[in-house]
Amino acid sequence: MPFNGKSGKFNAAIRTVEIGTGDKAVKLGGECVAPLYSFDAPIENAPKVGVLITDHGFENESEGIKAYYEGCSNWGEIAQRAAAMEGADFLVLKFDKADPNGENAPVEDCLAIINEVAAATDMPLVIAGCKNAEKDAEIFNKAAEALQGKNVLIFSAKEENYKGVAASAVLAYGQKVGAESSVDINLAKQLNVVISQVGVDMGNIVMNVGTATAGYGFEYVVSTLDRVKAAALGQDDAQLQMPIMTNVGDETWAVKESTASEADIPAWGPVDARGVNMEVATAMAVLASGSNAVILKHPTSVATVSKLIKELM
């Protein structure tokens, strides 16, 4: 009997969410197949790679990242340098310094950076906060207002602040919004439901289901991504058919493998290469499990992951 190949294409599809405007705008999602299974049906929008910039600058970053941005004297130049990375699709601005439990930088400082960056580049922008729900709501509200017409992604609304954040970002200022949960499938779905109950069309939501670095409880991340995509595609669950964006770089550059110096652990070799390996390995694993976009820091990681994606499409 001849072999009859059966396509694993699903009857359901992930929604397509566009961020940015003009030529540089990127489309996330849209697929009706398992992650990266372009042999089952064409994947119109390949997974995307974003570059993370934080308001701390690059003082404490690894040598390779620091070197890449050397000579940049303002946020506009930093943004242009980041945008010039081979394989970069969008930029992510993150305001760690605004955390009230840390430096508590005022919202005006965040806005100044946002305005400088927005003026210097036409790359799609993703605005991330400081992890404090209340302060994030303030930053997001001002950022969404300042960036009207740029179709940015506000990344992201959480259980504690979704009402204000989603309503301001999408309903008041026409931006896209992220829905953030921490490796919790039920909360991931619940947030999508309640955000849509605020009046936000589900086509404006990108999921941020959280991640860990490969090796650090990462199997929960994989099972979460798997279950979300299985429900979205296999069970046609409309409440989970949002594309997923994952902030990989922020996690992987904080673990020991990426920070311990070669002097401390000579057997592990150069720290910069190790950090890139951790970042690339984690990024590819979340992409293979269903993430539609990853956020990275190191130029070598950005180039490597985007090349891998290209080869797989």
């Binding site: 499938i185 909360l187 619940q190 439901v193 429900a231 409440q239």
Partner: peptide
């Protein structure tokens, strides 16, 4: 396990 649980599952 036909649908994924969320607290609002009765509303959808």
């Amino acid at each position: 396990n036909n649908t994924l649980y969320a607290d609002s599952y009765l509303e959808i």
